[in-house]
Design a protein around this nucleic acid. Structure first.
Lengths: 339, 339
DNA sequence: CTGAAAGCGCTTACAG
DNA sequence: CTGAAAGCGCTTACAG
């Protein structure tokens, strides 16, 4: 077991100074061809690699960025990580992944712990609890310290920073319009409670589409789900008590659950009921029938977020306080659950 | 924008030495109650937090561990990350996630980049390509440098280190036996090529179960899939050309694809064909019919792996070179696709 | 062409 | 009770 070799050891071994070794390894012309070669050969032999931590301390940057997500189990977030990884690696950055588990405290803890020099910047999608509390002090603090933050998907207007989102309202509007164009009138919405930013926006898009087409908004057809555990009876009720034409669900789980319950209730999908989901994940693809859905390109979102963060990190002029919000386009993927 | 405050600045501001500040903040009894209080108050006011990088350099440990996985999109791996995060965080460790994308080169690059002081240890599941090449020099090197490595799921006997696995052979044996007990004789296997360690072991378990029950092993019923892209025709062939009683698939995707193709071919599942999958992921749960499967508790695997790594990191006596292999129990989850 | 010195931000054994 | 010094592993402006 040979420990990692350091400049100091090489210097001692070769009886030169540490500076000479350092410069030789960087191929500095200051050093004579001769000693350079000797030192480089020796270093290669001992497989010398500079210590990253020492470099980080010296350079005051770590070349690692952190992405904080609410849940890794959600396919969408896994997808975003993948996108972040790709462009981060391309640019020589490492990625630290933190899970908030939808908890405000864990989100705060993670940020505080890492803001002290461990990383160069954050990419974050807010936890539910944070969105509910509307307490963003931890993020503001980090930004005030001069550390760049890019928010994605679950963002807030209360914070000024770079953001990458989809147009949730428009996407929901389009999905609903798609159903209306098929001739459907009784279109139910299965959504989240309003404090989840994207859920609220999608609800608004749904309502707008109905109004635009002079269809009355029936509150009984709007199901806002709070508890992620026991929502099946609620959906079952919705399906049983209303003679629905179609359902628009704001995520995969709600959509696939609606499909399964419809089957149980002997409602044929798509013949008697059309269903559209949101997030083009693995469930939508492999469900039977497969689910038509609004695709949200997580890889692209993650890639864009990483790009924005890295550009800010490497910007020379720190004064450039022009934050921007990038909107990733979505598209409606038609599959078996509609028409 | 106030930059992070350092010990040096506090010392200057309060006109004491850096040592005094450092000690005061650690509540050292060496320092008088008085100055301690004064310094602590000041530090709190300026929200002083020690710089992690400096601590890492000083302590020669970073309190961060890295997990390298082949794919984050696989629900199972996402699940393992979650398990690692949990116990790592409980113990004050951060988690760096790296994706090898099943590529040998990316795996090597990731390890080499991080082995130079950035992290304290690795948790890794081998990429396909690495398993095919059987080239493990990067892992051996890291271990030789004294950095602990824990392998999970896709492991190799060629490396001595801590491991956490499931008994793939036994689990496959049990799943096959379960089908045999139902009275099925023509049981097909959809598996991976042999160089994927877990695929091979599962294949062996299947064969052993058949032999144990004096059922002839029919090579035509064993489908080894190499290409992850275009395997549907292969499965369709398998289903069409053999009058199967049951199918055992070594992962979710193969299982759900078999179900979808059976439906297309008008073969009723489970009435005419029973199907068992592997890995209790989200697809199995939400498929129609839902899929009976061998559950592989990723959270538990990840947690165990992290525990083993951290224990080794914090072991006093470095001489304890007793590596162990933990086996996580699996269970057969019965759902709609069987019987 | 080579090396001593200062510094990144911290800790701690040692002097006074 | 307080502080100067050395050190973690590196880089670089400055002397010689």
């Amino acid at each position: 077991m040979k420990r990692k070799v350091t400049l100091k050891q090489i210097a001692k071994e070769l009886d030169v100074s540490i500076s000479t070794v350092s410069k030789s390894l960087k191929n500095s012309l200051e050093i004579s061809e001769d000693t350079r070669q000797k030192i480089q050969a020796f270093a290669k032999l001992y497989n010398y690699k500079p210590n990253n931590i020492a470099l980080s301390l010296k350079n005051r940057k770590t070349k690692t960025i952190c992405i904080i997500i609410p849940e890794i189990i959600h396919h969408f977030f896994a997808t975003v990580i993948s996108g972040v990884e790709n462009v981060a690696n391309e640019n020589g950055y490492n990625v630290l992944v933190c899970l908030s588990d939808e908890s405000f405290d864990k989100e705060v803890l993670n940020m505080e712990m890492l803001a002290n020099g461990s990383i160069d910047g954050f990419i974050i999608s807010l936890s539910k609890e944070t969105q509910q509390k509307k307490d963003f002090h931890h993020i503001v603090e980090v930004i005030n310290q001069g550390m760049p933050v890019v928010m994605f998907d679950r963002v807030t207007n209360d914070i000024l920073c770079d953001k990458v989102i989809i147009d949730d309202g428009l996407a929901a509007f389009n999905a609903t319009q798609f159903l209306i164009d098929k001739g459907f009138k009784k279109i139910a919405l299965i959504t989240t409670v309003d404090y989840v930013s994207v859920g609220k926006l999608r609800t608004q898009g749904y309502i707008k589409a109905l109004k635009n087409n002079d269809i009355e908004v029936d509150e009984n057809l709007i199901l806002k789900i709070e508890d992620i555990e026991n929502f099946e009876p609620l959906i079952e009720n919705l399906l049983t008590n209303n003679d629905l034409d179609a359902v628009f669900a704001v995520n995969e789980i709600f959509a696939v659950t609606a499909i399964k319950l419809a089957r149980k209730l002997n409602i044929k999908v798509p013949e008697e009921l059309s269903i559209i989901g949101f997030t083009d994940g693995i469930i939508s693809k492999y469900s039977t029938p497969s689910i038509s859905t609004v695709s949200q390109n997580g890889i692209k979102m993650g890639g864009k977020a990483a790009k924005m963060l890295i550009e800010r990190l490497e910007a020379e002029d720190e004064e450039d306080e022009q934050y921007s919000t990038e909107v990733i386009e979505t598209e409606l993927v038609e599959r078996e659950s509609t028409s």
